[in-house]
Amino acid sequence: MTRDDIKANILKIFETEFEIIDPGVDDNLTEEHDFDSIDALELLGEIEKMLGSELTRQEKKDSMEIRTINQICDYVVSLAQKRSLM
């Protein structure tokens, strides 16, 4: 799993699950794409599926300040590294 794989997966999730197509990687998702707290929680579920394991409570809390696709990718990379997937 590479960062590019993760980015491609995240963009695919945004298109299929959130109907947000090809957002800028540094767009503020809340302000520019109506991505809200419910979407954020759904995204965590999708990330769990991508990684094949449950996120800890702390890991979920760590995601709360994320606003952009780039930040999401960084977050997933760190989770994947902790799980020895990268």
Binding site: I38, L41, E42, L44, G45, E48, K49, S53, E54
Partner: peptide
């Protein structure tokens, strides 16, 4: 085995 994803964030809503 994928019980972690059994309840989606919006299922309750």
């Amino acid at each position: 085995d994928e019980r972690f994803s059994a309840i989606g964030a919006v299922d309750y809503l």
